[in-house]
Amino acid sequence: MTMDASPLHTLPMGPHALLVELDDLAHAQALHAEVLRRRAAGTLPAVRDVVPAARTVLLDGVADPHGLAAEIRTWRIPPLTADAGRLIEIPVRYDGPDLAEVAELWGMPAERIPATLAALELRVAFCGFAPGFGYLTGLPEELHLPRRATPRTAVPAGSVALAGEYAGVYPRSSPGGWQLVGSTDAVLWDPRREPAALLAPGARVRFTDAAAASAASVEQPRT
């Protein structure tokens, strides 16, 4: 992937924070990765919270936001490489109540949905909505879906869902308007675990077909 240098705007957000605005998600993700790199290398001034979003990266808990803004404007930010970030595989059972509707919207038989999603490498762009809920990007435009006209009052924990340009997994039962295609036993959020969230911004995600995996394990010879 090649990326042109993007105009980067630094906006004030109170006495201790800085909001950096970029043209699009790809540039926001590239800046987020650069911030984390510099933080890990110890070359970034202390920042309490780094909060990426669709077009922005918020740096909160900063002693000198003006100074940091001036510094960031001098950065050369490399584009995000495809293999940057940890890869997390989430086994999915394709048993969602909206599977047939999604198949129709995508113009394919429902049986092809598992392989279609397994072929994609998604990326956690940002978290929000609930602790541990990651907004996964990387769905090609033809797979973008509308939200449901009427949101459900309770979506079960572990539901694998799609809406707009995003995919996500509900960390716990909550109301929701996304299209539900399947479910997973993966634990998205466990405050007793370190880290508590399975999906953190920057991580790569692949939805694997739980049915295919269990079929394969049954075929294996037993001793």
């Binding site: 919270d49 918020l58 978290c127 909505f129 809920f133 508590a196 911004p201």
Partner: peptide
Amino acid sequence: RPGHAHLGV
């Protein structure tokens, strides 16, 4: 619990 905003907390 400051410092967990990136995880939605």
